[in-house]
Write a protein that binds this DNA or RNA. Structure first.
Length: 473
RNA sequence: GGCCCCGUCGUCCAGUGGUCUAGGACGCCGGCCUUUCAAGCCGGAAACGCCAGUUCGAACCUGGUCGGGGCUGCCA
């Protein structure tokens, strides 16, 4: 069988990572089976759909490397792939369903419907138990699907196994609005059928809607897809992610300097695992191993700390030159200005030690900020803890003397000079070097000292030491 | 309320009746290394929600219970 799967986001807001994970799993499934991955845009809700959101969705998927074989922008033989371009088709399907008796017009008022719901509540029945085809036929209003009351709907979910719904709990749901637009259920089901989707892999929030989609599929006709419902992804507070809660935008992660390959790796671990003990693996390995039956049934919490660790792993694994290239735009935007070629040379010199301690690119700029400013910002807690101690001015003074006479100012000579300072003052490295670190970088946390000083250069280093001597008084 | 799904360390996963005194990863704690912070290495605390049942034997099977989540819209 030729696998055809789709991701069908609705451009009514930012894509949260739950949808992104669903996209990733669909994509991995398609690639594993040499199938087709389709990007469809579910914009039946015209009121709330916006082009800007659609653009962001596509940008995000491209960034993550989730390339689609068919769909918006790339086309395909089953197009169009945007629901707003398929309105005629939905209308046609609705007319067929009404004609064949599978659906009916309903012009009952909201009040009427509400009282039916209340009646059901009172009798402890499904709220929509009484919302069925009324005796009085209508020719306008919404169109409802007529749910056959003699059978239950059961299906084999690829992740959850057998799931069964009694038909009495499936209401006669609306498939066509009175304003002439299809609802999600109709549009999505029609599309899946028309696009010959073989596997519908989506969030668990749609599990309860699945019997409706199955019934609709049967009424419309065509090959029913298999269903697989992914567990939801929760925020740090254990509440499900939504368009206004938790990590919502892929753009945010990209801007902070997460690597798409790391993000993919982390996301693949949310509800799936490649085996018992590996957590870092390539996308190719994931694709080769991916199987829906290995997807977990329980919800997963999105853990930023683990993502950051994962990203650090990938950053450290980068060749130095690639690290420099990829971190570059983040350094620029972090600093708020371009660097000249001398400054880039300095940055490159520091790169290896920066790369080691970078969790995401945007925090790299901060590490080297002291190199590219004449006004060092002294971190107050650092100053208080390190500089307001006995003997600090001696350390700074002697260091200045030793550094001032150096001809070469490379790592080794700086180290030798400062070691001799330590000896002269009979002070340990731990105590004796911290004041220099604060004086030169502004903080008690920084890249390694000898590198920092040698890259900063003699003049600027001596200036900073002198400034601190003065400030201490 | 009704229906559906889910329930292993704080978090993400492994585990599919005996090899589990439950394994890995992140995080956390301690140590080593050490010029800080990272990284690395070593060690540690930390979980089968609960109750029955099936069985010689249950994290794994069944029932119940409790807890979490979803759906219950002319949103998707």
């Amino acid at each position: 069988m030729n696998v055809r799967v789709r991701i069908a986001p609705s451009p009514t807001g930012l894509v949260h990572v739950g949808n992104v994970r669903a996209a990733l799993f669909n994509w991995m499934f398609a690639r594993h089976h040499d199938g087709v991955f389709i990007l469809r845009i579910d914009d039946t809700d015209r009121e709330r759909s916006e082009q800007q959101y659609e653009d962001e969705i596509k940008e995000g998927f491209r960034w993550l490397g989730l390339d689609w074989d068919e769909g918006v922008d790339v086309g395909g033989e089953y197009g169009p792939y945007r629901q707003s371009d398929r309105m005629d088709r939905y209308r046609e399907v609705v007319e067929q369903l009404v004609e064949s008796g599978h659906a009916y017009y309903d012009d009952r008022s909201t009040e009427e419907l509400e009282s039916l719901r209340q009646k059901a509540q009172k009798e402890k029945l499904h709220p929509n138990f009484f919302i069925r085809r009324p005796a009085r036929a209508a020719t306008a209003g919404v169109v409802r699907f007529s749910v056959p009351q003699d059978a239950s709907v059961e299906f084999e979910d690829a992740i959850r196994g057998e799931v069964r719904f009694g038909s009495e709990v499936i209401d006669d749901f609306v498939i066509y609005r009175s304003n002439g637009t299809p609802t999600y259920h109709l549009a999505s089901t029609t599309d899946d059928l028309d696009h010959a989707i073989t596997h519908v892999i989506r969030g668990e929030d749609l599990l309860s809607s699945t019997p409706k989609h199955i019934l609709l599929s049967r009424a419309i006709g065509g090959a029913e897809p298999r269903y697989a419902h992914l567990p939801l992804i929760m925020g740090p507070d254990g509440k499900p992610l939504s368009k206004r809660h938790g990590p919502t935008s892929l753009k945010e992660f990209r801007d902070r300097g997460f690597l798409p390959e790391a993000f993919r790796n982390y996301l693949s671990l949310l509800g799936w695992s490649i085996d018992g003990d590996r957590t870092v693996f390539t996308t190719e390995e994931a694709v080769a191993a991916f199987d829906l039956s290995d997807v977990s049934k329980n919800p997963a919490v999105f853990d930023t700390a683990k993502l950051e660790w994962m990203n650090g792993e990938y950053i450290r694994a980068l060749p130095e030159s690639e690290f420099i290239e990829r971190v570059r735009p983040h350094v620029v935007s972090g600093l708020g200005r371009e660097l000249d070629s001398d400054e880039w040379a300095q940055f490159s010199e520091m790169a290896p030690v920066v790369q080691e301690r970078t969790k995401f690119f945007s925090d790299a700029g901060q590490q080297v900020g002291f190199l590219f400013t004449d006004e060092v910002i002294y971190d107050e807690p650092s100053w208080a803890k390190v500089m307001e101690k006995e003997g600090v001015s001696d350390v700074l003074r002697v260091s200045s003397e030793k550094l001032a006479v150096l001809d070469r100012f490379d790592h080794d000579s700086v180290e030798a000079a400062l070691r001799s300072m330590l000896e002269e003052l009979e002070i340990g490295a731990r105590k004796g070097l911290q004041p220099l670190r604060v004086a030169v970088t502004g903080s008690q946390v920084s890249p390694p000292l000898f590198e920092s000083i040698s890259v900063l250069g003699k003049d600027r280093t001596l200036n900073r030491l002198a400034y601190c001597v003065e400030r201490i008084g």
